[in-house]
Design a protein around this nucleic acid. Structure first.
Lengths: 148, 148
DNA sequence: CTAAAAGTCTATAGATTTAGTAGTCTTTAG
DNA sequence: CTAAAGACTACTAAATCTATAGACTTTTAG
């Protein structure tokens, strides 16, 4: 039940764009340096975010990435789903539920998984990029409080 | 963000024990047949459940497994944690949080992960084995409603 | 027009985790 | 003693994750 690096790195990356796009498109390379992620791996994550309409690319000289929506219209859930697919603890409660359950027993536990799926999505959709931007602009002393 | 087969099979297995222990210890082999899981793999799952005090084994002739607590005192969360370890979307919000975050940026997203971790555990702990037993004893027509 | 900066696409490889198998040993009722 | 049943340890095949690499396209400054 862990997020992979895709989701974690990708969220940091799009937050980095939100924080730095005021001075023009943000390059892969600059994000990679600030976030300590390889350029090449980061490229794949940004491709997923772009194909899901969360960011857009500006090609050519002085290109880079900028958000494709307002920060308050992008939720953490949107980002994670773009990078990791549907957020669901088991296949049979995915949005695109191909594998309809063949076992009766599963149905008993299905209620639990469905409840969990719903709640996970609600929590992740309750945070927007704007929330995180605001949080990251708080004075450092305050931020340190979360860091033990 | 998917459960592995350990969690899914293991929950089915302990539910199977709850449903069948009234006629004495339930053998690995009988669970394996009903649940269509290999005896050998199932053995490992039951070992985890036993070491976490959720079931107990009776060795020797006519042995098998029975619950080590009342069904209402075993939550789905207990079962999943026994089989898959702490339920947390990222390492840094695990109960045994070894990897304290070294990056400031993580702290911004940490609040989200912590909220998610808490909620996931609450949902899974809100269902007990007794709930599932009761659910699985409802008439089939009713159960079918959840299937599709 | 051309060079350099920047993104795009597809394939591949190494590492890790998952899922399952196998062999050998121990316990216990009858 | 013996057969049924669990216990322990090691191993392996497959899948997934985490990148890395190479060749290509777009854009603009000069």
């Amino acid at each position: 039940m862990k997020l992979s690096t895709k989701g974690r790195y990708g969220l940091r990356a799009i937050l980095d764009i939100a924080l730095n796009q005021n001075t023009g498109p943000v390059t892969i390379h600059s994000i990679a340096q600030r976030q300590e992620i390889s350029d090449r791996y980061l490229e794949q994550l940004l491709t997923s975010l772009r194909k899901n309409g969360l960011i857009k690319s500006i090609r050519g000289f002085q290109g880079g990435y900028i958000l494709n929506k307002e920060p308050q219209d992008i939720t953490v859930g949107d980002v994670i789903r773009a990078l990791e697919g549907p957020i669901a603890p088991v296949e049979c409660v995915d949005d695109n539920r191909q594998g309809l359950c063949s076992r009766m027993e599963l149905c008993v536990t299905r209620k639990v998984w469905e409840d969990l799926r719903k709640t996970m999505n609600e929590v992740l959709d309750s945070y927007t990029l704007e929330d995180l931007v605001r949080e990251s602009q708080k004075p450092k002393e305050f931020v340190y409080d979360y860091c033990i």
